[in-house]
Each structure stands twice: as C-alpha cells, then as structure tokens.
C-alpha cells in the first residue's frame, strides 16, 4: 500500500524545497480545492528570457497535493513560460510515480491547475487541463 505514500512523497511533504513566498514575483495565482478546503498559491520569478529562476508555493493541503506542488515547482526551474503551458497531467503523475483514484487526482493536479492559471488566463487553464 504505502506505495501511495512513497518516501519521496512524504519527504517533499515534510520538507518542501519550494514552500514560501517570492517578493516581487512576476507571476502569481491562487486557487482552492473546495472539496477538501485545500488552498494553494504559486509565485514565479522569470529572467529576461522568460525562463523560470524561482518558484514558490504556499498554502495547505494533503501529502499528495503538497508533494505534487513541490515536485512540480522543482521541475520547472530553468524552463520557459511556453514550456509550462505544455505541461500535462501525465507530467505530474510521472513526477509522483503513483496511480491515483479520481478523488486524489484532484489533489495531485491542484498545483498544475494553479500554475497554469498563473501563466494563462484562468479560464483557459481549466480548458487546457481538461484537454490534456
């Protein structure tokens, strides 16, 4: 069982690398998962080439949503905003390395949803997630 709670997930939940706030961020967005009462904010700083140099999240959530957020932000450092738009559900699941029930999938995808909203318009972010 403890597959779902692999060490990497527990580790990123307990000691997230990207938890906190960025002053003077270039992109920021927050959203919640009303089903769980979870709340997540993501802030990004980019350089002149529109490449991510810093990424932070803040908020509360379960181990799945927090570790997914941390792993996701860790994976996007150095990537361009355009690259971020191409991220999909599969990328998150690959990062986590687990399979999820539909309910927990919402937890895992919250950070991707917020990230996409930060780089797109909110409306598009939802459409985009559904399509991918």
């Amino acid at each position: 069982m403890d597959d779902l709670y692999r060490e990497i997930i527990i580790e990123h939940y307990k000691n997230p690398l990207h938890k906190g706030r960025i002053e003077n961020s270039d992109y920021t967005f927050e959203d919640e998962n009303p089903l769980c009462g979870d709340h997540l904010q993501i802030e990004l700083r980019v350089n002149a080439d529109q490449k991510v140099v810093d990424a932070k999240f803040d908020g509360q959530g379960c181990a799945i949503s927090i570790s997914a957020a941390d792993l996701l932000l860790d994976s996007i450092i150095g990537k361009s905003i355009e690259d971020l738009k191409a991220l999909s559900k599969k990328d998150i699941l690959d990062l986590l390395g687990i399979e999820l029930s539909p309910v927990r999938l919402k937890c895992a995808l919250l950070s991707l949803k917020v990230l996409k909203a930060a780089v797109y318009e909110l409306q598009e972010a939802d459409d985009d997630l559904i399509q991918k």
């Binding site: 069982m1 403890d2 779902l4 709670y5 769980c36 509360q60 959530g61 379960c62 181990a63 799945i64 927990r104 937890c107």
Partner: peptide
C-alpha cells in the same frame, strides 16, 4: 501535521 485525506486513505488500505 497530517491531513485528513491522508489519514483516511492510509486507514482505508487496512
């Protein structure tokens, strides 16, 4: 320090 979702999910496994 443990979210209710995680509690329920781990309990469910047993």
């Amino acid at each position: 320090h443990i979210h209710p979702h995680d509690i329920a999910q781990i309990l469910d496994q047993s």
